[in-house]
């Protein structure tokens, strides 16, 4: 892995009135890395995520995302990232191709390129037959895979995944991670937020937030060693209790 930072966060603070949602966060994420951003509900993950996506501005700190400044260049940040959430991913009443085309056009891609790339990725997935099917008519596992491929269709530098694999069967879940590994191998940085610790074990490095602060940051393996835990669930419980 090349250790070129693609996300650089120095002394990030975010306050809402008297409430400190993000308390002096410091971390770097490298190009092509799969980075897990963990924490319980209310720990401050979403607040930080919104800043990293250019949707909200920090109160103080130096934050650089894909080469852009988090105060002044939020529009440029948005152009160079992809985002996939578990809850809202694709339009149910549009077909597979219509969804892809919509997202790709929003990011300014040309029609010809969209068509060619769609054919290529659907072929790779053995999913060409579903090109003109409505999203509501395809199985959940396929929706997730498509949502991911749509989020990286414009070849972003970073893709943010919000609780990506909840609820799918274990085989589909692994197919999904295969796509994530492939994207990372091709140089896309993958930033995963989750409170499902099992998922964290698939990441290269993870950070754990508690009460607005980052309380641990390392590879899952090292964290398990440090906290003499047999899995990330135990690490989290030891930190958060």
């Amino acid at each position: 892995m090349t250790q070129t930072p693609i996300i650089s966060v120095k002394n990030l603070n975010k306050k809402f009135g008297d409430f400190t949602a993000n308390d002096n966060l410091n971390f770097e994420v490298y190009k092509g890395e799969i980075f897990g951003f963990l924490g319980a509900n209310g720990a401050g993950k979403t607040t930080a995520l919104r800043i990293l996506c250019g949707l909200s501005k920090p109160t103080s700190g130096e934050i650089n995302i894909a080469g852009f400044d988090a105060y002044k260049q939020t529009e440029l940040i948005k152009r160079h990232i992809g985002y996939m959430s578990q809850k809202f991913s694709l339009y149910e009443d549009l077909t597979v191709f219509e969804n892809i085309r919509l997202y790709a056009r929003i990011y300014g891609m040309k029609s010809k390129e969209i068509k060619e790339k769609t054919t290529k990725i659907l072929d790779e997935l053995n999913f060409a037959h579903a090109r003109n099917k409505k999203i509501k008519d395809i199985p959940l596992g396929w929706k997730q895979k498509l949502a991911f491929l749509t989020a990286i269709f414009h070849n972003p530098k970073i893709v943010f995944l919000d609780e990506p694999t909840g609820g799918v069967d274990p085989i589909t879940r692994r197919q999904f991670w295969d796509l994530i590994y492939k994207a990372a191998d091709e140089g896309i940085t993958v930033f995963v937020t989750t409170h499902y610790m099992d998922e964290a074990e698939y990441c290269d490095r993870v950070s754990i937030m508690d009460l607005g602060k980052i309380v641990a940051l390392d590879t899952p393996e090292n964290l398990m060693k440090t906290y003499t835990a047999k899995n990330m669930d135990e690490v989290f419980i030891k930190i958060a209790r």
Partner: peptide
């Protein structure tokens, strides 16, 4: 579903 590791335990 949807609860953190501590609450789950």
């Amino acid at each position: 579903t949807g609860v953190d590791a501590v609450s789950r335990k």
